[in-house]
Amino acid sequence: MTELATTAQAKELHARFYHDVMSMPGGEKIRICQQCGTCTGSCPTSYLMDYGPREVIAAFRAGMIDRVVKSNTIWLCTSCYYCTVRCPAGIKITDLMYELKRLAIKYDLLPEDSKNPALTKYFVNSVHKHGRNHEVELMGKFMLTKDPGLAFKFAGLGMKLFMAGRLPPLAKNIKGRDELTKMAAYLEAEEAKAQ
């Protein structure tokens, strides 16, 4: 199917996506999608997406997965898993969305107006630093760097939550937090070996 993609980048993304999906358990089911649209019809955010989940699979088949990787679609998936449980072919569509998010981050193909990739990165950084997600640090960093306006809008609610003891300012560090970075380093090294 690779020959369908035209530019070098489109070809690379297509090959990478194909390889990664086929190595997932049940990934080969993407071949039996009959374009029924149950996924798109079940998706609570498809009305906001450049391409609905059904079109994602159609685009892949047409060698145009690069367009989807660059679109807002993947960053609007909330992981509600409705598409996955309803797909008559048993395609794990939510997992396809995760794969596309990973490709977009890896190849730095992030839509300009999307704030979700930054939130994702900050979340991972917070966990690597503390071993747990420190919500206050995550929300604070996100708002200050990506959406200062949101910090103002959030101020009233933030104060209410703070007064209710729901925004503890200090992070708790787990003892084995270096284990998380070590495991990540191990897996990265293994991946590099395999390629």
Partner: peptide
């Protein structure tokens, strides 16, 4: 000494991790 489960964010960066 439990750690974060990774939630949906980790799946978006590296699956095996």
């Amino acid at each position: 000494d439990w750690n974060c489960c990774g939630a949906t964010s980790y799946f978006s960066v590296r699956e095996l991790e």
